[in-house]
Amino acid sequence: MLAILADGESYGYAILKRVRALSRGELEWSDGMLYPLLHRLGRLGYVTTEWRAPEGRRRKYYVITDEGRTALAEHQRQWLTVTRALEDAWPGSGALLTGLGEA
């Protein structure tokens, strides 16, 4: 979710659509669960929020903070380490990421 927000500010419904698109529909959880998660990111200081009304209705926008970017970079580093280790541990699986993509 931080990675989505790193591309630019967004709001709940758009974030969810992006999650669906990025995971090709496989990572789908019930829509309501998204919000407690977003609020948690807010409490940790990774995102800030702002109410705006671009089309008449008030909507809550989430913007990533510098701390959020730092946390994101750290997560990316950890996942890369794990991915590399798994690629070495499962020889023949080819590129793990493409493998998983086709699974």
Binding site: S30, D31, G32, M33, Y35, P36, R40, R43
Partner: peptide
């Protein structure tokens, strides 16, 4: 329906808040 089971969602809210 897509919003999900409201009991589960509100429990998740309760955990966060």
């Amino acid at each position: 329906k897509r919003m999900g089971d409201l009991d589960t969602v509100s429990r998740e809210f309760a955990r966060e808040h």
